[in-house]
Each structure stands twice: as C-alpha cells, then as structure tokens.
Design a protein around this nucleic acid. Structure first.
Lengths: 343, 343
DNA sequence: CTGAAAGCGCTAACAC
DNA sequence: GTGTTAGCGCTTTCAG
C-alpha cells in the first residue's frame, strides 16, 4: 500500500479510509493528506474479496434500443448509485433468452450482491423462476412480471391501465370500443387487454373476438392491425391501442382512409412517449412511470440485501404495484357525449 | 476451493478451469465432472486481483431516458459481451457533470480495464480531457466528440449528415431552406448546422441569420422554433430540422397553420426514430447508426487494452468517423423540381 | 503431470 | 492508538 509513506502501517491507513474511530486526530490528518496528494484509490476488488460483499448489483435486461427498457434502466442506475452500489449491466440479445444461466452466471462470478431481472414476462420465460430463484446465492427482484407470492417484484398495473383507457372513452360517450393488443405471450399485453374487456363487460357492452386484433408493439404491426380491425368491426367508434407506437400508425391509417380523429375514431394509447404529445392530433394515452419502477426495484433489492446481512427474515411487502395514470389530450373528444348519451 | 473434493489440489482445478495443457485427460475429466455437478463458479474477484486485470469495462453516459444514448449503450453492451468483458454502467444525472472525478473514480476503484466516455461533447465539458486523459491509469475512448489528435474517439459525421439533408432538398428543387438547430453548445448541433450552411453556400444560395433558429432537441422547443422561423423567413419552402423530435412538432405546426407538407414546406429530420416512418407524412431523415457507434468504440477500446498489455505502442487509427445516411420518405417531394428549376 | 508456497490488496481479530 | 498476523479465492512460480 503506497500510502504507508506516512510511516504508519497499512492498518492505520485502512482505518482512516473507513472512518474508524481508533485513530488519533493528528495521525488521521497526516494520512488523509498523503492519500489526497497521491490520489490514492483503495481497490474495491480486494475489499470485496475479504468482506465477502461487493457493493455491486447486476441488472439483466433486453431491448435497450426500445424506450421502455431504457427508461426503467435509467431509474435503476440512478437508485443504485444513490444507494452506493455499482451496477453491472447485462443485456440479453432476445426477449426470450434460450440460456438463462449464461446471463446470470457472469454476474454471480463477479460476486454481485443482488440482481434485478428486467426482461419482460413472456411466454414461459419466467417459469424457471420458482425452482431457480430458490437456490440462487443472492436475492433477485423482478421488474414487470405477473405477481407471484414469495417472489419479489415491482410492476406497473397494466390491467388498471386498460381500465383507465376504456373508462375514459366511455365517459366521453364512445360505445363501440375496439382494441389492438400487444403480443399475447407478453403478460403486460394480456393484462391491458383484460382491462379493456372487463371494463366493457362491466358497462354492459358485449365484447366479441371481432372487436380486437393482436399486434406486436411495432408501428408496422399497428398499421396491419388497424386495417384488419376496421374491416371486421366497421361500426367501431374508438380504439384502445396497447402502446403509443401502434397508436401512431393507427392515426396514420386514419388519415390515409379519411377517417376523422377523434370524431369518427377516438384513440387511446399506452406508454406516453415524449413524442405522443406532438402527434396530430396529440395522443391521449396511459402514462407508466418506468423510471420509478426501476428506482423502486433497486430500493427493494437493497432492503432485502441489508435484511439478509442482518440475518433478519425478509417479511416486508415484496410485491409492489405502481399505478399508471391517464393523460388526456386530443385524440379523444367529448363531442361524442351528445350523440352517445342514449346508448 | 470446494472442488478439491476430487482429491486433487486447488492447483489442478485451476488448470482445468483455464484449459491449461498440463493435466492428464483422466484427471481433467474427473475434475470437470465435479465442477459441473457442484455448479462451481470461480470468483472473478479473486482472479482479477491476482491477474491485475478485471476483464471489466466502464461506461459513463447521460440521458439514458433519451433514445440516442440508449441506442449507443445497446451497441456497447453487445460488443462488450462479445469481447468477453463485463460492463459497469455509470450514468451522470446531467449532460454537463460538475464533478467528473466522482464519475470516473468508482470505476477505477473497481479496476476496470478501460472506459467508454459517452457523454456528449457540450460546452467545455471535454476541455479537461487533454490534461486528465494523459495520467489516467487505463485507456478511455470517447463517443461522439469533436475529433482531437491523439485522443481515441468514435463519432458520427454530423457535418456530413447536414450536407446530405440539404443536398437532398436542393436536388428535389427546394431553394429557400431554413434550419432548426440543436442547442449550439453541443458539438453535434454545431456540426449539423455547419453542414446546412456550407451546402447552401456551395450552391450559391445566400444564408442569413433569419434563416435559422436554435432549439434544444425537445419537441416543445421545435414548436417554438418553427413558429419563429416562419415569422422571420416567410418565403421558406423547406427546413432541415436537427432531430426528429423537433421535426415532429414542425409537422404539427404545419397542420395547425394549414401549411401543406411537403408541397409548401419540405422537412428533413435527423436520427431516424422508429416512429418517424409512421408520421403523417412519413419523415425524410438522416439515419445515424448509434448501435454501430457503440460497438466500434468498444472494439477500439479493447484493441488499445490488448496492445498496452503486449507493451506495444498503440498506433492504429484511433479516430473513427461513421457516415450517416439519408432515408427518403414523404416529407420531401420532388414536385418542386417543376417550379424550382429556373432558380 | 501434479503439489506446495507465495502473494494480489485489503480488513478482522487480536496483540501491545 | 497502533502494529502484527492471518486470510478472502484465486494464479504464478517453482519443486518434485
């Protein structure tokens, strides 16, 4: 250790670095000076090795080129830094990774203290969780998954989001409300669709399979979906689209087909992209606070880590649901109220 | 080391793990079996400590909630994994961090082998580079900065992008070409603007300060900018907008004001957001391959690291410029050619 | 081909 | 208050 130029042992230096009490003020000052002058940086590697804890978290994510995952990551990095942890980033090339071990093992080899699993809940890719998660040597928190008892997770209430969207359309007088869903192997897509379906059912409006079409989140798929939907549900007066990207192409097709938005077709999206406020007309949509989602997940993970260190049984609420909110803009009109009242 | 249950020394296990030759096939197999059965993972921490190299890279970025930085990050993670390095992610809360040391030091403390600096070149925030970079203990590669000799960097040719945009408008017959720039303390914004200015000048078209307005990348600023520009440059027949978000609100204002796009106002954006293809009309824009940008930076960084290990003087090309490309869509028309020919 | 000893940079536990 | 000893889990070096 270089700083022993102060003529003291490495021990004393260590004590100064860690703000331990047992150092005379005078020595502390002298050592600190030398540390500053040399720009000495203690090796976290060595410290991690002996302390058996790295102050390091891992996040496993996918699709960073999309806005959703990167907004959540934004929250994760911010909160990790705020909590004093460094963050290892690992990105799966696919949303449905074929080898989960190869994603996790490098993080474990680097002795992370905990893992955030931020790959969406698709198909059965979370099926391994129940077995695997048990014998993982470090805690893991899931982002945006269908809640399971005893599995820590932080999710947006996608079902509620679907309800909010449809309730708003109903309030404004729309009655023939179609839906363009996301890919239904995604839990989020299923939840949003269920919100749409149930809200209509509760309002006494029958729902048939002609009233919805499945997309795949992309604008291109939205274009195909809305054309199909217009064909099979011609009396449709509005549509809840499961994300803003598909809502955008829905609007575009509206223009191409001469369908006036919002008067002939009301549209509600989901996500609240920064661009959505500047679509023409601007898009009424459901906002989900993905940044907070990420922050909350890290907070929960750190809580679990600390609790385990202290030998406590972790028993706090370990499933957190974040409520989305409705953003009212121009793609839904209240003009429908006049004509829709008697329905 | 747990795997010494095989009845061999930790030495032999290490040799098996690292595929060293000096192990009898029979022993190797037996040890490997036990490793697999126990799911044993060697600690990269301990390995890094003794080898004095961590196979770890750090990236310092900002604004992950924006699409640009996260697309670049996408490339960085992918290439880092491909090259066998783990990645520490560090995000600055601001584009102009007040304390650069506090961003870098945690990475150095964790003994990263190299650093990617991915915060945009703004104001004088890269000024410290010349002093600082010299005595950094590990190599550092810059993303998207004004090239400096002897400082490794990978950048998009923003100037060229501006040229491409304006050349396209000229070819289609537009002559009164305005510009909405990004914030001019950003190098990228200045370069795009210079491309616009020089291309017009080369075509013999005079450029005055009434012909452009400064925005701040946001759609909101684009709205204000286009209104101002329409006021001070009423004969304008087209506009090169420095990013797609501002181009979107430019289109929106066009609608509001009854200005037909592309016939009365041609628009070229910059970035090629996934949404841009579904604007109405779809947006002609400049594509920059940020994913490749990120990949290339990591490739360069790893090359430098390897070279330094081998004691070689790094002398390869260490400034790489990536060319953007024009994406032709509907927001520019060739109808202008008929009327514009005689200009 | 295999094992023993030493040490990477740090801190916990115990002397003094 | 401070120094000494030991050891985190690995790999390197050198003997056998």
């Amino acid at each position: 250790m270089v700083a022993k130029e102060a003529g003291v042992s490495t021990q004393t230096v260590s004590r100064v670095l860690n703000d331990r009490p047992d150092v005379s003020p005078e020595t502390r000052r002298r050592v600190q000076d030398i540390i500053d002058r040399l720009g000495y940086l203690p090796s976290m590697l060595a410290r991690s090795l002996i302390q058996q804890r790295s102050y390091t978290l891992g996040i496993i994510t996918a699709g960073l080129n999309y806005v959703g995952p990167s907004r959540a990551l934004n929250g994760v990095t911010q909160q990790a830094e705020a909590s004093g942890y460094s963050l290892f980033l690992r990105e799966s090339a696919k949303f449905q990774p074929d080898d989960i071990q190869s994603l996790i093992r490098p993080l474990l080899a680097r002795q992370v203290d905990g893992i955030v699993w931020a790959i969406p809940d698709i198909g059965s890719n979370h099926g391994w969780v129940r077995k695997q998660n048990v014998d993982l040597p470090v805690p893991m928190v899931f982002l945006t998954m269908k809640p399971h008892p005893n599995i820590p997770s932080v999710s947006i209430d996608n079902y509620k989001g679907g309800c909010l969207a449809v309730e708003h359309l109903l309030e404004q007088g729309y009655r023939k409300i179609g839906h363009i869903s996301g890919p239904l192997d995604w839990w989020e897509a299923r939840a949003r669709k269920a919100g749409w379906r149930d809200t209509l059912a509760n309002a006494g409006i029958p729902v048939t399979d002609d009233h919805w079409v499945e997309g795949n989140w992309s604008s291109r798929s939205g274009e195909k979906a809305i054309r199909k939907l217009l064909g099979q549900y011609p009396e449709m007066d509005s549509v809840f689209v499961a994300n803003d990207q598909m809502a955008l192409s829905t609007m575009r097709v509206g223009f191409e087909e001469g369908i006036s938005i919002p008067n002939k077709l009301g549209i509600v999206g989901f996500d609240n992209l920064p661009e959505s406020a500047y679509f023409w007309p601007s898009l009424t949509t459901i906002e989900q606070d993905l940044h907070r989602l990420g922050c909350t997940a890290v907070e929960m993970l750190v809580d679990i880590i600390e609790a385990e260190r202290n030998g406590q049984k972790v028993d706090k609420k370990n499933i957190i649901i974040i409520e989305p909110s409705l953003i009212v803009r121009e793609s839904v009109t209240s003009a429908m109220k006049d004509t829709g009242e008697f329905n």
